[in-house]
Design a protein around this nucleic acid. Structure first.
Length: 638
RNA sequence: GCCGACAUGGCUCAACGGUAGAGCACUCGACUUGUAAUCGAGCGGUUGUGGGUUCGAUUCCUACUGUCGGCACCA
């Protein structure tokens, strides 16, 4: 009996019943048979020795595919668990999935793993890999499975099994003497795993819940060849060089001082210059988009935060109150109540709406010490905040406008890759479920209408409303929230906000709370990493370094400096008594985009010799020509 | 906050139970320089902070603070 197998190119071939994906691969080429990791049969991933019973669509995956990598790394996680159980029989295994880059496995072990343990485990894994142990699948009933893991004293597995409905078929996989509860599929045998590196150990809560026991997590990665592993490790080293904390120090952009306090940022002149350019641009863009710029205080009375709900829902992120004339005041963790107070300062008409108040508002939030991270997670930061107060009819439009505005602005800073999320109602939230659903729908519609791809972030909303988040990746692939557009049906009600509608009656406005850069600190951090410190010209604190060949050309250098300063170009002269090579090197290390080298020839001709950072010598230019070129580059933000 | 690692001049790093050393930076001097480091001299640290062990601690123990990698939490 034959069955019809349909390939991704829609060609159909006949194979005997019970043919496996591996046999199909062998039929195509021995190379493919060697490299195939997993296959999908009618869209479902299976082991390569899975006997195909009936006509099916099939796709074979090698390591170069997403499913291939996932299965490969997942199988490596099992191999690691096997090695760990070999070396530390008392350890209980829990779960061990593949992740974006590699895999991890969480173990319950009383004494944490050491770096030496990691080496031993890695060595044992390599030994087990060489044994070509087959990953054997077995299907059992839930009850049988519980019995198996009870004998093995694997309590976490039993806990998982007990949550599966009785009667369900359970698959377990064994390689060598190691058995694990697993949905699969897996690679054919451990010998496929050629290059292994265990990367780090850390604590992780069982089931990701801080109320549970902390387990020991080991992260690792593996590849079919050691060449790929080495490349990965080289890339990782390269990525670390882009770290904003390193570049921030090297380029003297900012610092965080222990003497002042953790998570509190000092913006040095170079960083502050960039921030200033960003803020000026930001204000211009907001004025163009009909926002009103406002400024508000840093502290407010406790009643204010009571009314807003912050003391009820956000207290753990707020600092202790201070006493002013026997009144409690809190340092602000958000700007919203102040913007609302501005709105409330007058009776509002529907004719004024939408009203959009924008502010670079500096807020302070208590962040757990372990969460602090360079500029990305700090305790005092400036939100590029705005609150859009509008009629219910205007809501969709405003959300949509904000979304487009946000993406527009991020692109001006050179960002191209972002991930967008729609975050829904969290556990701790104010307001009715029904309102939440309705608001979430309106955000979803804005995304759909603009054909923006997004993912769901269930339970990730603010306590006062659902939101759209735009996140960007740092050099090590960690995601950081940048823009956020949050619907807020809570505050208008709490503050009893009103506007007079055409019916001459008070109505409740809607409110959208949004930040586009997120926080200036975090935004700056991602900006540094995105550009590796090679900022686009318009943002560079020093755009041109003027390098006289010797002290004899100081006068000419000064005249060049005066000239380009007149055109608003930020420049500096290097008057050190050093050779030109030294000065060039220094400018290159400081990542200054343009170097103007001036000597006898330039002085006579009224030119400058131009060198571009990383690109090298561009040749000689008349001063006016190069100024024009630079101004163009600044204007286009390239 | 939790798990683990770490903390030495401004920076990057070395040393070690017997009170610390290099390079860069900085200062001074010489050189007057043509596209990624000229030479020489000098300055600079009570080894994160407190306690303990010891004849002696920067080294060992401990608490705290901070940093790093995760987890949890979040702009």
């Amino acid at each position: 009996m034959n069955i019809n197998i349909k390939f991704p190119d829609n060609s159909v071939h006949q194979f005997p019943r019970n043919t496996t994906p591996l046999q199909i691969a062998e039929n195509i080429s021995s190379g493919l048979a060697r490299d195939v990791i997993t296959a999908s049969v009618n869209g479902k991933l299976v082991d390569v020795n899975y006997p195909i019973q009936e006509d099916a669509r099939i796709e074979l995956f090698k390591f170069d595919s997403l499913p291939g990598k996932e299965i490969y790394w997942h199988s490596t996680a099992h191999l690691m668990a096997q090695a760990v159980k070999d070396l530390f029989p008392e350890v209980q295994v829990t779960i061990g999935p593949a992740i974006e880059n590699g895999f991890y496995y969480d173990f319950d072990k009383d004494v944490p793993f050491t770096d030496e343990d990691l080496e031993k485990i890695e060595t044992r894994m390599k030994e087990l890999a060489r044994e070509n142990l087959e990953y054997k699948r077995r299907e059992v009933s839930r009850e049988e499975a519980i019995e198996i893991f009870r004998k093995m004293k694997e309590n976490y597995k039993i806990e998982i099994l007990e949550e599966i409905p009785p009667g369900e078929k359970i698959s377990i996989y064994s390689q060598g003497n190691f058995t694990d509860l697993c949905r699969g599929p897996h690679i054919i045998h451990t010998g496929k795993i050629k290059a292994i590196k265990l990367l780090k150990i850390s604590g992780a809560y069982w089931r990701g819940d801080a109320r549970n026991k902390m387990l020991q997590r080991i992260y690792g990665i593996s590849f079919p060849t050691s060449k790929e592993l080495n490349q990965y490790l080289v890339d990782l080293e390269e990525a670390k060089k882009r770290d904003h904390r390193k570049i921030g120090k090297d380029l003297d952009l900012y610092s965080i001082s222990d003497d002042i306090g953790a998570g509190l940022v000092l913006w040095h002149p170079n960083g502050a210059m960039i921030r200033n350019v960003v803020e000026r641009y930001w204000i211009d863009k907001h004025l163009e988009a009909d926002y009103k710029i406002v400024y508000t205080p840093h502290i407010g009375k406790s009643e204010l935060w009571d009314t807003s709900g912050h003391l009820g829902f956000y207290r753990e992120s707020m600092y202790s109150p201070m006493l002013v004339d026997e009144q409690e005041y809190y340092v602000k963790p958000m700007n919203c109540p102040f913007h609302i107070a501005i709105y409330q300062s007058q009776k509002r008409s529907y004719k004024e709406l939408p009203l959009k108040y924008a502010e670079m508002g500096t807020v302070y939030r208590y962040e757990h010490s372990g969460a602090l991270h360079g500029l990305m997670r700090v305790r005092g930061f400036t939100v590029d905040d705005a609150h859009i107060i509008c009629t219910p009819e205007q809501l969709y439009d405003e959300v949509e406008k904000t979304l487009v505005f946000s993406l527009d602005m991020l692109r001006d800073f050179g960002f191209r890759d972002f991930k967008i999320y729609l975050a829904t109602m969290p556990e701790k939230a104010v307001g009715e479920r029904q309102n939440w659903d309705q608001a979430t729908e309106s955000l979803r519609e804005a995304l759909h209408k603009n054909k923006i791809a997004y993912e769901m972030d269930e339970g990730g909303g603010a306590f006062y409303g659902p939101k759209i988040d735009i996140k960007v990746k740092d050099s090590l692939n960690r995601l950081w929230q940048c823009s956020t557009i949050q619907f807020d049906f809570n505050l208008p009600q709490r503050f009893n906000m009103e506007y007079i509608a055409p019916d001459n009656q008070p109505h409740r406005p809607f409110m959208v709370h949004r930040a586009l850069l997120g926080s200036v600190e975090r935004f700056f951090g991602t900006l540094i990493e995105y550009h590796s410190g090679n900022f686009p010209l318009w943002l560079c604190p020093i755009q041109v370094q003027i390098l006289p060949i010797s002290e004899n050309y100081e006068d000419y250098a000064r005249s060049v400096y005066a000239e380009i300063r007149q055109h608003g170009i930020r420049a500096e002269i290097d008057l050190k008594s050093e050779k030109i090579g030294y000065k060039i090197r220094e400018a290159e290390v400081r990542k200054i985009p343009y170097m103007f080298i001036v000597g006898q020839k330039e002085k006579e001709e009224g030119t400058v010799s131009v060198r571009r950072h990383t690109a090298g010598d561009l040749g000689s230019f008349l001063l006016q020509d190069i100024v024009k070129r630079l101004k163009e580059e600044i204007l286009t933000k390239k």
